[in-house]
Design a protein around this nucleic acid. Structure first.
Lengths: 150, 150
DNA sequence: CTACACATAGTGTAAAAACATATATTTGTA
DNA sequence: TACAAATATATGTTTTTACACTATGTGTAG
């Protein structure tokens, strides 16, 4: 456990960019696995959770499918079907938009808000595992990734 | 374009850890989308590519399914089926292991090596897009992620 | 030697993702 | 107005993932 090189038993990387790339992909997979253990209890996928979070951010306003798509972590997601699943669980509502009948108004329900709150509580505990670096270091890492993507 | 907050239109994060978490997941998705455009031409998935890379690292030795699983970026992968796909394309061979009949010896073929080499050439060009930070900064980011996971 | 726990790989199945395409509505414009 | 292009969402289909389960081989304690 430790450096990405040790984790995947790769002694050398072509360059620092290639190493960072693998490190980011590996770390994302690691985070997903950890988070999934929480989501699974509530029968949510990461993307369903992501959608609910965005809808909470809009609450009490509605969001269109497109707005959700734009803000999703994974841009390739099929939002329509994610909403289907959430609606089947009464976590969101979907109504035609009055001003533009192509759009739909998606809103999070009280049940959805309650679920997110329950998950938040678990997350708080879980996130303590991530305090192996200081807040300043985390901020620095975020800034580097931002710059990398630009 | 720019900071993760602007990208997903989220003004505030609970804390720096939560922000870094979303940033890593977002950056990984960004990398996957970019890489996929290369892999798709060769009809490979990221995981198939990852497996081939590991097999090339072992070449000319064989790898067991377990060894592959351990070194994969995504630990949840179903390696048996990934190997199935690669074998169907003659990119790997799969033979029973002599010393332990539970195991199988998976090896990359010449065709597999050639494919990787072709992809490598494309990657070199593509990776130039990632030079928005210096090698030292990339190294620093890697080190922070390593520390974060520990 | 036998029985049993463990290791290793593969399979069945339901759910989800990927990707192309279709349908409906609005907008711009000739 | 009429009509092409753009926009917003939904659907069809194939592939991939997740996860539980199975089958087989190995090693070891008694």
């Amino acid at each position: 456990m430790g450096s990405i090189g040790e984790e995947i038993k790769q002694k050398e990387f072509k360059n620092e960019y290639s190493k960072l790339m693998i490190n980011v992909l590996y770390t994302a997979s690691w985070l997903n696995t950890l988070q999934n253990s929480i989501f699974k209890e509530h029968k949510l996928t990461p993307q369903q959770y992501n959608s609910l979070r965005i809808l909470r951010g809009q609450h009490p306003d509605a969001a269109s499918v497109n707005l959700l798509k734009d803000r999703m972590i994974d841009k390739m997601s099929n939002v329509s079907r994610i909403i289907d699943k959430l609606k089947a669980k009464d976590l969101v509502t979907r109504k035609p938009c009055k001003h533009d009948r192509r759009q739909v108004d998606v809103k999070i329900t009280d049940k959805g808000l309650e679920l997110l709150e329950a998950i938040d509580l678990q997350m708080v505990d879980w996130e303590k595992n991530l305090h192996t670096i200081s807040p300043k270091e985390a901020e620095a890492a975020s800034a580097l990734l931002d710059k990398w993507r630009s």
